[in-house]
Simulated assay, not measured.
Amino acid sequence: MLLIKQLVKTYSSEHQPITILTLPLLEVSEQQKVAIVGPSGCGKSTLLNIIAGIVRPSSGEVNVLGTDILQLRETRMDAFRSRHIGYVFQNFNLLSGFTALENVMFAMQFAKVIPQKERKARGLELLDRVGLIHRLNNKVNRLSQGEQQRVAIARALANKPPLVLADEPTASLDSDNSALVFNLLVEMCSQFNSALIVSTHDIDMANQMDYIFHLRKRSESDDVEAMSDVFA
Rank of each mutant, 00 (worst) to 15 (best):
N137V: 02
G146T: 07
E147P: 06
R129P: 10
N103D: 07
K139V: 15
F110H: 06
G146V: 01
D128H: 12
A152L: 03
L132W: 05
V130I: 13
P115W: 05
L95W: 10
N138D: 08
N137G: 02
Q109V: 09
L95P: 14
K117F: 00
Q149M: 04
F98N: 06
K139Q: 15
L94N: 03
E125Y: 13
K120T: 08
K120F: 01
V151C: 03
Q148H: 10
K112C: 11
F98K: 14
Q116A: 09
F110K: 12
N103M: 10
L127N: 03
N93H: 14
D128E: 15
N141W: 13
K117T: 00
H134Q: 15
M105P: 01
F98L: 10
L132F: 10
L126D: 05
A152H: 02
L126E: 09
G123K: 02
Q149A: 03
I133E: 10
Q145P: 01
L143C: 01
V151E: 00
L101N: 04
L143H: 04
A152V: 02
F92P: 05
R129M: 11
N103Y: 07
E125P: 07
S144N: 09
A152D: 01
A107E: 03
L127D: 05
L95H: 13
F92L: 06
Q116I: 02
R122G: 09
N141H: 12
L126G: 07
R122I: 03
S96C: 15
R142S: 11
K120S: 03
V130Q: 06
I133H: 12
T99C: 12
N103A: 13
F106I: 11
E102L: 00
E118M: 14
V140Q: 03
M105T: 05
E102I: 04
Q148M: 14
H134G: 09
S96G: 14
Q148P: 06
